[in-house]
């Protein structure tokens, strides 16, 4: 890219605009929908001109949903809280278990290590529906159905393989000699892991944490089957907007905006951190 002609620049700009439009339009449209009533949303032809209203957000936050058929109680805020709690706890536990495991898989050669790592990855291959029925039965027998603990446990199926495989790659990219240099300077295995391996793999761990948080947040089917209303995350809770008297598009849109806000904010924040971490860690060999 030494010189670019004006035509090339215009074409490139056009292409970028198209791509942005394609990806951003649904989000922008939903954002606009969340400030409209069902009537303005459903009018034909659609228009971007409307009188904005905060009714949808108010209904979600107070938990009182006005429909044509009367007043409906929803606990969207509780669902949001559940989502936050379930995802954050799952990721925290996943990191606690997955990062040392990833280090072991990356650094120590032990019998069957590849098989174990692959088995963990294979959890991601099977469709969740496949394991759902036996899982439900077991969970009911064990008393884990409809508990936070049970859900967090099941969420490890989503979170753990992801963390393990992403972080393992980052650990493998750290030259082993850096750790050796630290160990030979009088430090044991454990402190080498904490003081050298962990900081150097920091960006990778952050990326894995972020990604698995999003995956956990977006999970629907496990929570649908294994949790009742008071333990459900937003993904399942949003079903409440499909009421007897029709779909409440305005509230659905507001619910979506509220529920993507945390992951969106997290992604924006972590992106800055990731870029910083990756450009700083450059290890020349």
């Amino acid at each position: 890219m030494l010189t670019t002609s004006p035509i090339e620049r215009i074409l490139r700009g056009l292409a970028i605009t198209l791509v942005c439009l394609f990806f951003m339009f649904p989000i922008v449209w939903i954002f606009l929908m969340s400030f409209q009533t069902n009537e303005t949303i459903l009018r034909i032809p659609p228009s971007v001109v409307f009188a904005p209203t905060l009714d949808n957000y108010q209904a979600l936050i107070t938990g009182k949903l006005e429909t044509a058929a009367g007043m409906l109680e929803i606990n969207f805020m509780r669902n949001l809280g559940n989502s936050l709690f379930l995802s954050a706890t799952s990721v925290a536990i996943g990191l606690l278990l997955g990062v040392p495991a990833a280090y072991a898989f990356a650094r120590l050669k032990f019998k069957g290590s590849e098989d174990i790592a692959f088995t963990l990855l294979s959890f991601r291959f099977a469709p969740p529906l496949l394991v759902l029925l036996p899982l439900t039965i077991y969970f009911q027998q064990l008393g884990l159905a409809n508990t936070y603990g049970g859900l967090i446990w099941v969420y490890q199926l989503i979170v753990l393989p992801l963390i393990l495989w992403i972080v393992r790659g980052y650990f493998e990219d750290i030259p082993a000699d850096i750790e050796y240099a630290y160990r030979i300077a009088g430090h044991d295995f454990w402190s080498t892991f904490r003081r050298i391996a962990l900081p150097l793999a920091g960006p990778g761990i952050a990326a894995a944490g972020l990604l698995s948080f999003i995956f956990a947040w977006n999970n629907f089917v496990f929570a649908l089957v294994l949790a009742s209303a008071d333990k459900q995350p937003v993904t399942v809770g949003a079903l409440a907007f499909v009421t007897a008297s029709g779909i409440q598009y305005g509230q659905v849109a507001a619910g979506i905006v509220l529920s993507i806000a945390p992951t969106f904010a997290l992604a924006l924040y972590a992106q800055r951190y990731l870029v910083e971490g990756l450009s700083l860690g450059a290890v020349k060999g």
């Binding site: 030259p175 000699d177 050796y180 240099a181 630290y182 030979i184 009088g186």
Partner: peptide, 18 residues
Amino acid sequence: PVKRNVAMAFEGYSLYPT
């Protein structure tokens, strides 16, 4: 290694990047 009391200069340098 920690108990052997040796120092080493590595071929790949292996400086702590941080």
